[in-house]
């Protein structure tokens, strides 16, 4: 029956659409199939966040451990206040670790690198990084270097 064939083709068409969406989810956006893992929040204050943007990467030893949630200005200290969400399984970051803004490659994205400290205590949900290092500003660096000569 022609009607039946057509309905089957339409069904296949819709399945193809779902498959394509699945491909976009898994292969293109790298969404992992496991449910959104729990995370906790850490804060850090920087003098200069440079080109850091929300959704940026937070990494440790080059491995991604979380993302930048938001960046806002602290009107008391006039510093940038960065909210990060860190994967819950990374729960033993030493309390004296430093958050450093780095650039991937010469012109690439900026991300936060956590350089590991040696404290026995670890950072907990809602804690703030004690020491931070702001974005390296290439222009400023060059002008400092030139005037220092």
């Amino acid at each position: 029956m022609a009607n039946r064939t057509m309905e089957i083709i339409v069904g296949l068409f819709m399945i193809a659409g779902l498959a394509a969406l699945l491909f976009l989810a898994l292969q293109v956006s790298g969404l992992s199939p496991k449910p959104d893992s729990a995370s906790y929040t850490l804060y850090a204050k920087f003098n200069d966040t440079g080109g850091l943007s929300p959704r940026g990467r937070v990494s440790m030893a080059g491995v991604t451990i979380g993302t930048v949630e938001s960046i806002s200005l602290d009107t008391d200290t006039f510093q940038a206040r960065v909210v990060m969400s860190i994967d819950a399984d990374i729960n033993n970051i030493p309390a004296d670790s430093a958050a450093v803004i780095r650039t991937s490659g010469l012109l690439g994205d900026q991300y936060i690198d956590v350089s590991v400290g040696g404290d026995m205590d670890s950072l907990k949900d809602g804690d703030t990084f004690y020491s931070t290092q702001s974005a390296m500003n290439l222009e400023r660096l060059i002008s400092n270097f030139a005037s220092g000569l």
Partner: peptide, 12 residues
């Protein structure tokens, strides 16, 4: 590069 820059909710 694709996976690290494309976000499922924001982009797809």
């Amino acid at each position: 590069n694709m996976q690290s820059s494309v976000d499922f909710v924001d982009d797809v």
